[in-house]
Amino acid sequence: MIENSNGNALHLNNVQIVLNDKLLLSVNETVQAGEVLTLMGPSGSGKSSLLAYIAGFLDPVFVASGDINLNETNLNELPAELRKIGLLFQDAMLFPHMSVGQNLLFAVGANVRSKAERKTLVEEALEVANLSDYFNADPATLSGGQKSRIALMRVLLSSPQALLLDEPFSKLDTNLKAQIREFVFTEAKRRMLPILMVTHDEEDAKAAGGKVITL
């Protein structure tokens, strides 16, 4: 698999998000490689908007200011597709018209040209997710936990330089939660990604083990 070798950090320099002249949140933090920064707060506190701002999807009704830097690169003016920011949502968001394997192939960078090499990368990822035989499976037939693992593998195959988690475990069954949580953090930390997580769940924050900001 492609590893994130540089081990740099995600910097949020005086980032502020304003809605209708009201300041929703203000963050000035650095997330180091392999560390998790957890944001907790009620809905409407602007935490998901912060993720959208970092990833490049902020709705124009919000006004945001402040610099986002990833490994010395300023992201503010970059379009979403060039930011190298991986995103995980509450739902796995696997593309329903593609097989599991196609979902993963879609994520592998275009710089990997050879078909065989792309396929190998995907098969390795399926192995890590413990879903080796699922290349041709319809995503709709996977269980919630399997979908989450594929979603993470899909993000990681696109070689992101940072990872944003938007309440990624909130829809999972309690008994699955811990398992998937550990899987996500282990795999992301192994690649030395800076991780920013937004959550409602104290358990998520504890498992992440990093700094927690409550809004």
Binding site: G56, F57, M93, F95, H97
Partner: peptide, 27 residues
């Protein structure tokens, strides 16, 4: 249509046009 599909595809490094042809239009 759930916008997050498009956001997921963009954040995987695909261009807007690629998202349209590969994800949004087929879905």
């Amino acid at each position: 249509w759930d916008k997050r599909y498009g956001q997921a595809a963009l954040s995987l490094g695909h261009s807007q046009n690629s998202v349209f042809w590969n994800i949004r239009a087929p879905m």
